[in-house]
Design a protein around this nucleic acid. Structure first.
Lengths: 319, 319
DNA sequence: AAGTACAACGACATCGTTTACGTAAAATTA
DNA sequence: TAATTTTACGTAAACGATGTCGTTGTACTT
């Protein structure tokens, strides 16, 4: 008991005995048993992080930031990938809550999954990243999807493009819906009649679909891609069809990726604060865990910026 | 006790009572308490993964593969980033071993850190990925670094380049040493006298260093970059200096990255089987944990392939 | 019919820590 | 000085699952 008090910094321990304990700990190479601690209802000092795909640049940056912020407060991070499959996601959440973690950071693949109600109902704090959920209220951290898309499409409109198409993936996601809504807003504002939305599925099938779209007589003269995957597929397709971005066709993507500067012409994109997203979400979750933050759930929206480079038709990349 | 036997599939349970137990479990929404299980010395069904940087493409792909293989066997993964700092790495390992995990996958930043002896001496199985350690023997999974570098530099030699420089990062790492050794092997074999090795530090400082190297009168006519970071920095530098890869200078990198196909000219690189690296390492670790594999430590070396594209000077990218 | 083997289950102790409580000794107060 | 409070420990119980062992019941021998 004295050892326990000493370790947990309880005041009623004499400096003399504290020293004896410390020496014994060193001599015996003693380490507190984590399992036993948790059995008595203590915090596990660990959080869970569930993302669709760690190898996606966006999520890998988010994960990195989460990891960093958690470590700064001596928290460990469970990492799990849901592969965009609600069943896997539910299983991962189940594993984590019973393992136990003190809180969960979740990038939900589906916003209406019934199992989500269950976690939120439990006493494990949950913060959603990037996408909110609809069946229950949790804290959530996201970005200005709609406004960002408006900025992107507005820029294409200013360039004078007449036929701007919107290309996306996973169009059922809230984030995607918002970006597509932004696309529509911008066109409506500009009073353009041409409106064409295309959802790509797999990498393989997208090739054919894009080739058809871009080879048509009345093909679009500009493209707004709603996430990095579709941006990359479009760049590949344009390269294969030998259509010059910025000259023959304009392109602005949502979600900026580092290597966009290395492509010729460099790619104009809406930059999301991925690292900050992870930081903010983690800090919020840890506050919830420590009871430092007690209000009802909050929704934090971070701003995005349009990074102008060359694929939109601008001559010079902006600083 | 009957519930325990039923859950763990002990044979001495009547179907009738098993059914009763199952019903009770469902009715009470009972879940075994993980902490209590571990207290009795059971496996935690979790492994730790420590990489230098999750947001590096190479490691994010490895992490993804680890995650997948682990999940297939119902294992959870702790993710930790060491930020290439031995002190952080040691702390992460310490946290994990006491948390407890059943095994650790480690990409060690330093191969001689004394703390490494301690983990290996403990009873937590360790498998190193990408880089082996030197102070103790563990299972390790890596790639053919030296042979891969030889392939890369041989290819540049065949193109007829006379002044081939080797550019790297973290040259103290075993992997880097091996690649640099491969560079030397190839030049020796080709009886070239020019040999120049450059180690870059941070992204910022590398700019100036590269600019100086590439603007000199007797600048190299070809570059072998020993990892993806240096490849990317070189591409940036060449783009800024407006030096055409493949025409004015040859480039072959070690570690292939998806977007290399999107750059003009596309980048020739040695492709490492990153996903397989993660899979193999995880499978090996789980076998060790389950006692299915008892021999002394093994070192698995996976082959690499040279993906020929255009930056080396070849006209067409290979299929 | 009695003895033997084994299947099916329950009671109890145990893992390592913390909470709650007890009890001295020391410090403070009346 | 006696009464009270505070300090510094120790003891007992608990957390939830499992290993060990004991008990009962059933089937099979002989």
């Amino acid at each position: 008991m004295t050892v326990s008090r000493m370790i947990n910094g309880h005041p009623y321990v004499t400096p003399a005995t504290a020293k004896k304990v410390r020496e014994a700990i060193r001599k015996l190479n003693y380490r507190p048993n984590h399992a036993a601690r948790m059995l008595t209802g203590k915090l596990s000092r660990s959080i869970g992080l569930i993302v669709p795909d760690i190898s996606d640049t966006f999520f890998s940056v988010v994960s990195h930031a989460v990891q960093e912020t958690a470590r700064a407060q001596n928290y460990l991070v469970w990492l799990a990938a849901s592969e965009d499959d609600p069943a896997i996601e539910a299983a991962q959440v189940e594993s984590m809550t019973h393992h136990p973690v003190d809180g969960i950071l979740l990038v939900p693949t589906q916003s209406r999954e019934p199992y989500l109600k269950a976690i939120v109902a439990g006493n494990t704090p949950v913060v959603t990243i990037d996408r909110p959920i609809e069946v229950a209220t949790t804290d959530s951290v996201g970005v200005e999807n709609q406004a960002g898309a408006v900025m992107a499409v507005d820029h294409l409109v200013e360039h004078g493009y007449k036929k701007i198409v919107c290309i996306s993936t996973n169009a059922h996601l809230r984030t995607m819906k918002d970006r597509i809504a932004g696309y529509r807003d911008s066109l409506r504002k500009a009073k353009r009649s041409y409106q064409n939305e295309l959802e790509l599925k797999s990498s393989a099938s997208s090739k054919a679909v894009l080739a058809e779209l871009l080879s048509a007589r009345n093909r679009p003269d500009a493209i707004f891609t709603a996430n990095n995957a579709s941006t990359i597929w479009v760049i590949e397709a344009l390269k294969e069809l030998n259509i010059q971005m910025g000259k023959e066709i304009g392109l602005v993507g949502f979600d900026d990726v580092d290597f966009f500067t290395l492509i010729t012409p460099s790619v104009t994109a809406v930059r999301q604060p991925a690292a900050e997203l992870g930081n903010v979400a983690t800090r919020l979750l840890l506050q919830r865990i420590n009871g430092e933050f007690k209000s009802t759930s909050v929704r934090t929206i971070l701003p995005v910026t349009l990074t102008i480079r060359e694929s939109c038709g601008c001559r010079r990349a902006s600083a």
